[in-house]
Design a protein around this nucleic acid. Sequence first.
DNA 1: TTGAAAGCGTTACCAT
DNA 2: ATGGTAACGCTTTCAA
Lengths: 338, 338
Amino acid sequence: MTQRRRPTIHEVAKVAGVSISSVSRALNGNTSNADMVARVNAAVRQVGYVPSVVAQSLKTRHTGQVAFAMEDIGNAAYLEMVRRIQPALRDQGYRLLLHSTGADVENELGVLASLSQNYVDGLILCPLRVTDRHVEALRQTAVPVVVIGLLPDDVPVDNVRADSRVGARLAVEHLAEAGARRIAFIDGPLDTVPGRARYDGYRRGLASAGLAAADDQTDELVRFTDFQFEAGRQTARELLTAHPDVDAVLGANDLIAMGVLHALRELGRDVPGDVRVVGMDDTPLAATSFPPLSSVSLGSADRGRIAAELLLRRLDGDDAPPERVTVPPSLTVRESSR
Amino acid sequence: MTQRRRPTIHEVAKVAGVSISSVSRALNGNTSNADMVARVNAAVRQVGYVPSVVAQSLKTRHTGQVAFAMEDIGNAAYLEMVRRIQPALRDQGYRLLLHSTGADVENELGVLASLSQNYVDGLILCPLRVTDRHVEALRQTAVPVVVIGLLPDDVPVDNVRADSRVGARLAVEHLAEAGARRIAFIDGPLDTVPGRARYDGYRRGLASAGLAAADDQTDELVRFTDFQFEAGRQTARELLTAHPDVDAVLGANDLIAMGVLHALRELGRDVPGDVRVVGMDDTPLAATSFPPLSSVSLGSADRGRIAAELLLRRLDGDDAPPERVTVPPSLTVRESSR
DNA sequence: TTGAAAGCGTTACCAT
DNA sequence: ATGGTAACGCTTTCAA
């Protein structure tokens, strides 16, 4: 297997009997007459020439690459994003680099710092949380960055966000309209951004439905646990045993809500007859569960698409002020809350 | 926002009062005395120098990048792979490029061809199917390739494969041992690679369990449909109505099996009391379904990990003959078949 | 329209 | 051990 070196523009030039500048021009569609283009193309085919993107990058100062960095691509929301981001970028000729930071803030900051190595033209970042060091790094990145997630107002970076507060509120109002009066909430950790936002949304929903005073802080029907299936199940079992009068449960994500469904089944309670259930994120789990799970979509696909569009605009040279786009949540009602 | 140019090795050299060659050597850990290293590092910090990976790539002829190409990252199996591939590569200093080919063979061949642009040092490819053009392209790629999936024996490329035939057989034997006698199979399209292999495995399983003659081709309990939830549900409903004596169903993937579970519930049949159900792929759906779904894992995570290891070995310069690794399937028994 | 030549930012060879 | 210099493969002035 003799590894022959790839032909360069010089080989093409020699075969075509022209200069390398002419080859470059002909290939890049710059001024050259039809005859020249034909000769160059013939030579290109003959020697099997393919331009080196590395050399092009060095010269042109852009790489044709964009990075997407998030905690873990296994997360359904990030997966939805990447499914939209990749085609959008590919259509514009960009390749996509994937960085899973693995819940490691240092890793995340490392990605930001590595940007000055100039291996990408831009970055879409989903930060775990935004520290001062993030802000500092974001202020002086070598390339355009779009952040998906919450971001302090004074950070001059394009920003796409969900509204999980409104999302949770939507779910509560829906449950109340359906007739629920004792609506429980199983949240993720309160010291996470989504945990906090969803908790606030839940409380607003209760207040707007007239089910709790706005200043009621008892939270007897609220539990905090991990955003996981087993955690949801255990917590739901405890909650439902302690409060048999609960007639609806909102899970802070679909995994928790799936746990709630299992707990209810184990306790012999009918869904939605005895207890209605709603989840959040609207993952594939929701449609195939039994009964199919109502869920609040936070628009991950849209957020991904919009982030890609914003970044492409920057890469196109747009230097308008940073944009802030909030994607509204939407509730898909399925049998679990009907 | 004045975009100042990044400092180059020349700035560092000037500040340190040494030559650029010395800077390069000091930074790359080549012969230089401690004093020199210290001066260079000081200068690097002072000017905020970060080497250009593009220039390095041009010079060293490798990019530090690897591509992973598959149909759609939304597919649970590919997702598992990428979750293993990415950290493995990152630990060795490689970045990961993602190519979703979107069920488009041309696109897939395009990726193979684009390899000669030399933007990556290697590729992990999950082909939809392997055509003659694939084989030809694979024979003369510019960089090492590892193929995950079936590959003709004479293609000199590292290859990692699942064994879904044995996987299906495993499931059938398990169901037979559990007492099932009328085991139905809802497969995907027979003209797909997995559809065919799983069908063969199903038949072998029946034969080895003594439930069918090896040459029995009646297939009255077999149906072919899409690898999707709704398809599985519809098909199962029809099948179970036509054959009420069916006491077990194997779904060719978890989505189909989820459809089967729903159909059984709609028909008022108990799982696993009346009918046992097993799926394939062992996706997250299986663990959270009700009842939890037994499923055959085809080792996607392992295949991803092994593919990454094989590729890294090649990138390390190993030129041993191509390897062929088959990852054995394994059955996770949950309540749906107990 | 074409060709010559100067970089892009590195690494590595060759003297010193 | 260090410095000068020639590549790496391309794009883009600048003259002709």
